[in-house]
């Protein structure tokens, strides 16, 4: 063991770095295994998450009334640690945009970070292009409001106050400015589905959203809404890692205490 550590040290790798690397490597065969099991016909049931189930209802309501759906991808971008949250928002957007164009519901998607804007625009274009009669339906609008988080929130407030929105869906990175948008949505009696990751923001999501995607749940979009085997396999891997982390913690606590 010591000789391995020495070897690592010489190559500029610490023990924790090696540990994390092994953890990362362990994920790959697990992911492949579960995905192949799913391909072979094995079923992995998922616990129900209400927010995913209700999305369709909101989009349907929008199609009936002609009032637009607003979707926010948060204040994160794709070149910093907020990337994963932004991607979760984009994954949900893909579903929402496809559903909205399919049933003729107008959709406005807003972003704050300019690096996220092109991806949002392409996602909306892709959803529109898959529609069989694309020239008879409106392409979802993807636009940037402002790169400053508070200015972005103010712009979203303006949409919620001024455009009689049928539903407000927000998934991505949110900070303390969230309350401006979430509470305005409540005030305007707009049904809201919100997904966020930051524990400092989640209490306010809980207070303002009709349905929430709490933390890790927001990353499960692919498995729940576009059931691709690899996404369901991803959740299974997350659950295995979860058990592994719990066992590690318990073991660590025992070692410290004895």
């Amino acid at each position: 063991m010591d000789s391995i550590l020495e070897l690592l040290g010489n190559s500029g790798i610490t023990a924790t770095q090696a540990l994390m690397f092994i953890l990362l490597l362990l994920v790959l065969p697990l992911l492949a295994l579960f995905a192949s099991q799913l391909h072979a016909g094995k079923r992995i049931p998922l616990r129900p998450i209400r927010a995913f189930e209700r999305l369709g209802t909101f989009i349907g309501q929008s199609a009936e009334t002609g009032q637009p759906v607003h979707m926010s991808l948060g204040v994160g971008g794709i070149v910093d640690p907020s990337t994963a949250e932004s991607l979760a928002g984009l994954a949900l957007m893909e579903h929402v945009a496809t559903e909205a164009t399919a049933c003729g519901a107008p959709l406005t998607v807003t972003v704050s970070d300019p690096t996220l804007l092109p991806l949002a625009q392409d996602t909306s274009r892709r959803a529109w292009e898959t529609h069989p009669y694309q020239y008879q339906v409106q392409e979802p609008e993807a636009r940037m409001i402002a790169p400053d988080a508070t200015a972005y929130a103010a712009g979203v407030m303006d949409i919620l106050l001024g455009e009689r929105v049928a539903a407000n869906i927000m998934v991505g990175r949110f900070g303390p400015e969230y309350l401006l948008m979430g509470e305005t949505g409540v005030k305007c009696r707009v049904p809201q589905v919100v997904g966020a990751a930051d524990p400092q923001v989640l209490p306010f999501v809980h207070a303002t959203a009709d349905d929430m995607l709490l933390g890790e749940e927001m990353f499960a979009v692919g498995a729940y809404l576009r059931p691709r085997p690899v996404h369901i396999a991803s959740l299974r891997v997350q659950d295995w890692l979860r058990v592994f982390l719990i066992l590690t913690i318990v073991l660590g606590v025992l070692l410290r205490s004895l």
Binding site: I44, P45, L46, R47, L235, R242, I246
Partner: peptide
């Protein structure tokens, strides 16, 4: 541990 377990998705 329990909050982490809360997110358990599958099975």
């Amino acid at each position: 541990v329990s909050a982490l377990a809360y997110f358990y998705f599958t099975g």
